[in-house]
């Protein structure tokens, strides 16, 4: 088992394997997005209080979930890298950050476009919105740190440390609507209670969330492959691959 894990943790093997997986993840993401949008726009009914404006939920909530989840995965790979000095885990962390930042931006953008007609404001400094904005700056700060440190190994460690310190922000985002008075409403979907959404609306949202998940895997694998080529450029297998 241990031998097997090391086998897949070798960048060369991982490069080959991920190359085969990317199309599967990518195309399933496309198909699920089409299905999710069909449910969201043609099957889900109008909402009783928000009318059609609520349809922003089908991208807002998946994007917000991904923004937090990707950060946790980055922190996980950073911790693994620091603990076991595995090159590939740091690369995974680096490959995820831009997509995490993208989803954070989308969550904030769609939130503003949703907040204006429903609440009456594009932006308010409540705990939920502020902590999500902090998440965006964390992503940007981590990526800038990586870009600023030329030595890959030192950059990996510094970035992983900053990622781990910033991870405290994720539970703050998630529980902010419970811990403090916020303008943002509580969670519609959580592990502790039945979802407070009509079933078809919920299904549309979950399909979009799975699509976002598959998309993230596909682009992160794509990015990590480029990183592997750069870092392993002096190995025989990359040299052979380039010459083909």
């Amino acid at each position: 088992m241990a031998i097997n894990l090391y086998y897949y943790a070798s960048p060369a093997t991982f490069y080959q394997l991920s190359g085969k997986l990317i199309p599967w993840f990518g195309w399933s993401a496309v198909i699920l997005t089409v299905i999710g949008l069909y449910i969201g726009f043609f099957m889900a009914p109008t909402d009783f209080q928000q009318g059609e404006a609520y349809r922003i939920i089908f991208i807002h909530v998946p994007a917000a979930w991904m923004s937090m989840f990707i950060y946790l995965v980055m922190a996980f790979w950073g911790a693994i890298g620091l603990a076991f000095k595995t090159r590939l885990s740091f690369m995974m962390s680096r490959a995820l950050a831009p997509t995490g930042a993208l989803f954070t931006f989308i969550a904030l953008w769609t939130g503003a476009l949703w907040g204006k007609p429903m609440w009456g404001a594009w932006w308010v400094w409540d705990a939920r919105l502020t902590s999500e904005l902090i998440l965006l700056f964390l992503y940007i700060g981590i990526m800038a740190l990586w870009a600023a440190i030329d030595d890959p190994q030192r950059g990996d460690r510094a970035g992983a440390l900053l990622t781990l310190v910033g991870a405290i922000n994720v539970p703050i985002i998630y529980f902010s609507v419970k811990w403090w008075n916020t303008l943002h409403q509580g969670a519609s979907v959580s592990l502790t209670k039945a979802p407070s959404m009509a079933k078809i609306m919920l299904i549309g949202m979950l399909v979009m969330a799975i699509a976002a998940w598959l998309y993230t895997i596909a682009v992160a694998l794509y990015r990590v492959r480029t990183l592997i080529l750069e870092r392993e450029r002096n190995t025989d297998w990359v040299k052979a691959l380039v010459e083909k």
Binding site: Q49, A121, M197
Partner: peptide
């Protein structure tokens, strides 16, 4: 000077709400 609406986390069709 500013009034904001705070809605709840329930989403359902009008008939269900009724």
């Amino acid at each position: 000077s500013q009034v904001l609406a705070k809605h709840d986390e329930n989403y359902m069709p009008p008939e269900a709400a009724h």
